[in-house]
Design a protein around this nucleic acid. Structure first.
Lengths: 213, 213
DNA sequence: TCAAAAAACCGAACATTGTTCAATAAATAT
DNA sequence: ATATTTATTGAACAATGTTCGGTTTTTTGA
């Protein structure tokens, strides 16, 4: 691999430059400031040339989102090692919120365009589609470990998938409301940890209530 | 009250017509289809005239959001009477999700513009700002009743406010992910109810685990 | 009642957006 | 070296939010 024609290499290099400048514009000035002409300026091309590499603005945003989801997946694993699976799972959730609040416009963009992103092929079920999404896989793996360690009770109608989805919904709600409401003023991560502890307790087996940390 | 000058009445009537047509456009064709010229067409005015009633498009969207939050607050109480506070609280959460999925663009708009909506005056703390928001008050009231009935454990650092916020975060996450991912295909509300039950269990006192319904 | 003042309304324009297309410049193939 | 394919662009189009000067309508006050 890696030995394509020079033309191919130039093509992909320019494509990368396009989405790189797009990401930078979004990060520094918000998604509202992103325009084809801004990108063209940044990479010293004419606006019309951009359309030689991406069909339209939406295609660019989609590429930006793909990279965004990859970065999010990375971030989910970027926490110090923990002694207990429950703590690790909790910190994974904290990382989700942290990523959101440190890349607000980026994060919001991810989940505005996600409809086109993930669930694009209606022939594949929502569940399998999700289970193949790397970001969800990280969460799902944590939940499976929790179940294996006896920290989560599963029922026939509510298994590891549902629990993982619930975990995602929980951290996503925390992140979203933090972004749209608490944007001013810093977050109290100890409260967030307490919230995630409560979430875990909801799935813990009866009688298991010893406190962590 | 109600006996203002005719000019005042006309003024407010036109203002109402503007946001009413805006709501309809959003509801039928999505927020992307909303433009000043579309509104002007709908109410038989010129585009320029709109600016006699609202400073700019953002001001219109803000007015739409205010109405949206009022409708959301209404919807939160629009469920059949329940025998148990826990069931009522759960149905309130279901209503939140229901409102979101039956008014997707509307709902997404609410929480894109919410930064400007609620937390606008930095001198008032986030907590008191939230506690004065009607939609949050509905949730908070439910949680207070749950606490009073002994279904929720409170600690010095995690009281009714934090629990209510957590409840909002939970349902908001469910709604948001449903909107951006499960937009195709209907929701399984029995799974959502199970999720909300698990959430409640997380705050239930030790040893209280009898199943509801 | 009727002129003056104020308010409401609109046509035309401006700047900015995404996007297209014919024409030109560059790269590649023969 | 020439023909052909590819890359690039300037200019234009339509749609957007918004402004402004002027015109029409309404209210005011004598």
């Amino acid at each position: 691999m890696g030995n394509e024609k020079p033309r191919q290499r130039r093509n992909t290099r320019i494509r990368q430059a396009i989405i790189k400048s797009a990401v930078e514009i979004i990060h520094h000035e918000g998604v509202a400031a992103l325009s084809i002409r801004r990108i063209a300026d940044a990479i010293d091309y004419s606006p019309a040339s951009i359309y030689e590499y991406y069909a339209n603005k939406d295609a660019i945003l989609q590429a930006v989102c793909e990279e965004g989801f990859a970065k999010l997946t990375e971030a989910l694993n970027d926490y110090p090692p923990q002694s207990d699976i429950r703590l690790a799972t909790r910190e994974c959730g904290v990382q989700y919120v942290r990523f959101a609040v440190s890349n607000p416009d980026y994060f919001l963009l991810l989940f505005s365009n996600m409809g086109n992103q993930v669930y694009r092929s209606p022939e594949v079920s929502f569940d399998t589609q999700l289970l193949n999404s790397p970001a969800f896989m990280v969460i799902h793996t944590h939940i499976q470990a929790m179940i294996a360690a006896g920290h989560c009770v599963v029922t026939p109608s509510y298994g590891s998938f549902q629990i993982a989805l619930s975990a995602w919904q929980m951290v996503h709600g925390i992140a979203m409301l933090a972004l749209t409401m608490q944007r001013h003023g810093p977050l109290d991560y100890s409260v967030i940890r307490a919230t995630l502890d409560a979430w875990q307790r909801g799935f813990a087996p009866h009688g298991a209530r010893k406190e962590l940390l």
